[in-house]
Deep mutational scan, measured.
Amino acid sequence: SKDTIRINGIDIDVKDLHEEWKRLVEEALKRGDEELAIELLERALKE
């Protein structure tokens, strides 16, 4: 798994994120759902 995830052309540092969150965000991006990916990231970062 990578340490960054690219959303809207912005590389976001996710190395401190739990693997499960990372996977969910990557799944959302694979489906092209950037809005969901951002929402998941925000939730993950609050934890």
Score class of each variant (00 low, 15 high):
residue 38 I to T: 06
residue 23 R to W: 06
residue 34 E to A: 13
residue 4 T to K: 09
residue 24 L to W: 06
residue 40 L to G: 00
residue 47 E to P: 07
residue 18 H to K: 15
residue 2 K to M: 14
residue 26 E to C: 03
residue 17 L to V: 10
residue 37 A to Y: 02
residue 45 L to R: 14
residue 43 R to K: 12
residue 47 E to F: 01
residue 24 L to I: 06
residue 3 D to H: 10
residue 13 D to W: 10
residue 13 D to F: 08
residue 29 L to Y: 04
residue 3 D to W: 00
residue 13 D to M: 11
residue 32 G to K: 03
residue 45 L to Y: 06
residue 18 H to R: 11
residue 25 V to S: 00
residue 42 E to F: 04
residue 47 E to L: 03
residue 28 A to K: 00
residue 17 L to S: 01
residue 3 D to P: 07
residue 11 D to R: 04
residue 12 I to T: 04
residue 34 E to V: 15
residue 16 D to Y: 15
residue 11 D to K: 06
residue 43 R to H: 08
residue 43 R to A: 07
residue 36 L to W: 07
residue 46 K to Y: 03
residue 46 K to G: 09
residue 8 N to F: 03
residue 35 E to D: 13
residue 44 A to Q: 03
residue 33 D to C: 07
residue 16 D to W: 13
residue 16 D to M: 13
residue 10 I to L: 13
residue 11 D to L: 08
residue 13 D to P: 08
residue 43 R to V: 06
residue 23 R to L: 07
residue 2 K to D: 10
residue 33 D to N: 13
residue 10 I to Q: 11
residue 27 E to H: 03
residue 40 L to Y: 08
residue 38 I to C: 12
residue 35 E to T: 14
residue 39 E to K: 15
residue 5 I to E: 02
residue 41 L to D: 00
residue 7 I to L: 09
residue 27 E to M: 06
residue 10 I to R: 13
residue 12 I to R: 09
residue 1 S to C: 12
residue 43 R to I: 09
residue 39 E to G: 08
residue 32 G to I: 01
residue 28 A to E: 00
residue 3 D to S: 11
residue 24 L to P: 01
residue 12 I to P: 01
residue 42 E to R: 08
residue 21 W to Y: 13
residue 29 L to S: 01
residue 47 E to G: 07
residue 15 K to E: 07
residue 2 K to A: 14
residue 14 V to F: 10
residue 8 N to S: 09
residue 46 K to H: 08
residue 36 L to P: 00
residue 9 G to W: 05
residue 7 I to V: 10
residue 19 E to R: 02
residue 39 E to I: 14
residue 38 I to W: 15
residue 40 L to N: 01
residue 15 K to S: 14
residue 36 L to V: 06
residue 21 W to I: 15
residue 21 W to R: 12
residue 20 E to V: 05
residue 15 K to T: 14
residue 22 K to D: 06
residue 39 E to W: 03
residue 18 H to N: 14
residue 25 V to L: 13
residue 3 D to C: 06
residue 14 V to N: 02
residue 21 W to V: 15
residue 16 D to K: 10
residue 20 E to K: 12
residue 18 H to T: 15
residue 9 G to T: 03
residue 14 V to G: 03
residue 20 E to A: 08
residue 22 K to T: 14
residue 31 R to P: 00
residue 17 L to R: 01
residue 43 R to Y: 03
residue 30 K to T: 10
residue 42 E to N: 13
residue 39 E to F: 03
residue 26 E to I: 13
residue 41 L to H: 01
residue 9 G to V: 02
residue 22 K to R: 15
residue 14 V to H: 03
residue 4 T to L: 13
residue 10 I to C: 10
residue 19 E to K: 04
residue 25 V to F: 06
residue 35 E to W: 12
residue 35 E to S: 13
residue 18 H to D: 15
residue 7 I to K: 02
residue 35 E to Y: 12
residue 12 I to S: 02
residue 8 N to L: 08
residue 23 R to V: 13
residue 33 D to P: 01
residue 3 D to K: 06
residue 47 E to C: 09
residue 7 I to D: 01
residue 32 G to A: 03
residue 7 I to G: 02
residue 9 G to R: 03
residue 3 D to T: 09
residue 45 L to T: 08
residue 47 E to W: 01
residue 32 G to F: 05
residue 5 I to G: 02
residue 10 I to Y: 10
residue 6 R to G: 04
residue 35 E to V: 15
residue 25 V to Y: 05
residue 42 E to P: 00
residue 33 D to L: 12
residue 7 I to E: 01
residue 20 E to P: 08
residue 31 R to E: 10
residue 39 E to M: 08
residue 46 K to A: 13
residue 11 D to S: 08
residue 8 N to D: 07
residue 4 T to Y: 07
residue 14 V to K: 03
residue 38 I to A: 11
residue 1 S to E: 11
residue 32 G to N: 07
residue 19 E to T: 03
residue 24 L to Q: 11
residue 31 R to H: 12
residue 5 I to L: 12
residue 2 K to Y: 12
residue 13 D to R: 06
residue 37 A to Q: 00
residue 22 K to L: 15
residue 9 G to F: 05
residue 30 K to F: 10
residue 6 R to V: 10
residue 18 H to L: 13
residue 10 I to V: 12
residue 46 K to S: 11
